Amino acid sequence: MTAASVVVEDARSDDDSPGVEIDPVRWQRLAAACLGTERAVGELTLTFIDEVEIAELNLEHMGIDGATDVLSFPMDDTPIAGVPTLLGDIVISPAVAERQFADHAGTLDDELALLVVHGVLHVLGHDHAEVDEAATMRSRELALLEAHHWAGPAPSGFRHLHAD
């Protein structure tokens, strides 16, 4: 395998945020471009799920009660020669993104892009638990968004962190 591939699925129920349109090809291209820039090789799954399901996953895997915007599940397996590498899974809740974008990334489009990039970086091993890790991760997020989402500098209203 010489490149990264991304499988995208919209697994939301019909009644979850009917106003949030998801363009699977667009988010697939963004994730694949980020993987390419980061020189990752393998397969990634990007799934858009409803708020109830992401809350269940958040409780089950993170021990946190309530919905979140994005969860990443990196694969810890050692690559095997000749077998496609599974990089991991990213799940995003468009409903949560829709609710928080104004106080975060500025627009719903930028919020979804940030969540895709954030998830990709987590799958590739980045973290933000420590101050230095967070600075490195935010720097990579911004660079990837500028290269593959905006094709230029970040808009003035963009923020990595939620407004308090």
Rank of each mutant, 00 (worst) to 15 (best):
H61Q: 11
D103Y: 01
F101W: 14
M62P: 06
E43P: 04
A113W: 07
L108Q: 12
M137A: 06
V70E: 08
L144Q: 02
A95I: 06
P74A: 08
E111W: 03
L87E: 06
G42V: 06
V83K: 12
H128R: 11
H104K: 14
G63T: 07
V117E: 04
E38D: 01
V52D: 15
G119I: 01
N58R: 09
G63Y: 09
F101T: 06
L59G: 08
L108G: 11
R138Y: 10
L121I: 00
E130I: 07
E141I: 09
A147W: 06
L46I: 03
A40W: 07
G119T: 09
L46M: 00
T68K: 01
R138M: 05
L71F: 00
A81W: 02
F101V: 13
N58C: 11
T107E: 10
G125V: 11
L115H: 07
D69T: 11
P94G: 02
G66Q: 05
V123L: 04
L86V: 13
S93K: 04
D109R: 11
L57A: 05
M75L: 12
G36L: 03
A135V: 15
L71T: 04
L30I: 15
D77F: 03
G36W: 07
E51V: 13
T37V: 05
E146A: 11
V123T: 09
M137E: 14
P94C: 11
G42K: 08
E133T: 08
P84E: 15
V117D: 01
P94V: 02
T85Y: 00
G88E: 00
V70D: 00
I49W: 00
